[in-house]
């Protein structure tokens, strides 16, 4: 018989290296005389989209389009170190470094422009849609490229280098006190599953995932990160297990270490919660790892809701579920009261 159930999982996650480990990102920025800009940072985009986020941040500050920004990453000859692409840290930490660097280069540009436009303060200057000009006076503006080009002829360059260090202190080993991470990410997911009581096989039908990302700098990428994390979470919950025998992995192949295919991944509905993180770039914080955390609990809770057995070791394989169902029947009789049974 196939039985359905729903389960809830909630998670919070400290982002960044944490526990006092130096967590530093850096960036170089140059605004060019063709109206484009370059961002250089050691932060490597491994597909999560960090380079796109950096281009968006620089473009937003400079009144340009993301395609006007060249992002150079991961070149030890030219880019400043920004640590690893790990710990859910690039959008937040490297994003902050990029934002600081862009603002620094921009500040010099605005000071120069204020002088050129005979303004007393750079606060009256704006960068918008590839133009630089006096706020509220459309007659006093020029293409950004022209301004930078002229500045260049006078020996002015708009180049900057900045870094950003995450807030973290080691936890006191005696009393557990400290501030190991900042910021924290929060999420909640609901899973709907179908459990086959004959085979023990679980099919996850649907996941609704709500995640607080501070600010979604790129909503499409946020959805992509959540869906990817949910798929990994489903694998973690139901099928993935490294089998070790005397230190040797017995299943080092996709035929024996199963990961979800397109057929195993449920329908995923994402809810992006934007609760501004004031220390992040435009209020953003990381999402990569935390989005996987609630999936496990949601799936395992949904199995309990469906068939009344509590699986306490992962993955929740058909074997474990069938064994738990047999145990439950033996203890309480068929259709007996729902009880916690440790697998």
């Amino acid at each position: 018989m196939k039985k359905r159930g729903i389960g809830l999982g909630c998670g919070w996650y400290g982002t960044g290296y944490g526990n006092g480990f130096p967590d530093v990102s850096s960036a170089f920025v140059e605004i060019h005389d063709d109206g484009s800009a370059t961002v250089s940072t050691g932060a490597v985009d491994v597909g999560q989209g960090s380079s796109t986020v950096f281009a968006q941040i620089a473009a937003e500050e400079l009144g340009l389009e993301p395609q006007d920004i060249t992002v150079i990453t991961g070149d030890t000859d030219t880019t400043p170190d920004s640590g690893t692409s790990a710990a859910t840290r690039h959008t937040y930490n490297t994003g902050n470094a990029v934002l600081k660097a862009v603002r620094e280069a921009k500040e010099r540009l605005l000071d120069h422009a204020a002088h050129e436009f005979s303004c007393t303060s750079a606060q009256g200057i704006e960068l918008k849609e590839g133009w630089i000009g006096v706020i509220g006076d459309p007659s006093r503006r020029q293409p950004l490229a022209d301004m930078v080009f002229q500045a260049r002829l006078h020996g002015e360059r708009f180049i900057s280098a900045e870094s950003s260090t995450a807030r973290t202190t080691p936890v006191d080993r005696e009393n557990g006190q400290g501030a190991p991470y900042w910021p924290y990410a929060f999420g909640a997911q609901v899973a709907e599953v179908e459990v086959d009581t004959e085979t023990g096989l679980v099919q996850v039908l649907r996941i609704i995932a709500a995640h607080d990302v501070g600010r979604a700098i790129n909503p499409t990428q946020v959805e992509g990160q959540i869906a990817g994390a949910v798929a990994q979470g489903v694998g973690y919950a139901l099928m993935e297990e490294v089998e070790l025998h005397e230190g040797v992995i017995k299943n080092p192949a996709f035929s024996s270490y199963l990961i979800p295919t397109a057929l195993d991944v449920p329908n995923i509905q994402t809810i992006i919660v934007e609760e501004e993180e004031i220390t992040g770039p435009y209020g953003a914080k990381g999402l990569g790892e935390p989005a996987m955390v609630p999936t496990l609990a949601a799936v395992v809770n949904a199995i309990y809701d469906a068939v009344g057995v509590r699986i306490t070791s992962l993955p929740a394989t058909p074997e474990k579920i069938l064994a738990a169902l047999v145990e439950k029947e033996r203890t309480f009789g068929e259709g007996g009261m729902r009880q916690n049974i440790d697998s």
Binding site: Q48, A227, G228, A231, A262, L263, V265, I268
Partner: peptide, 20 residues
């Protein structure tokens, strides 16, 4: 049918959602 046809191609990043 799409999921069936793509099920021989593993992806670890996307969760297949946007691929489908």
């Amino acid at each position: 049918e799409i999921k069936e046809a793509m099920s021989g191609n593993l992806c670890r990043c996307t969760g297949y959602d946007k691929i489908v």
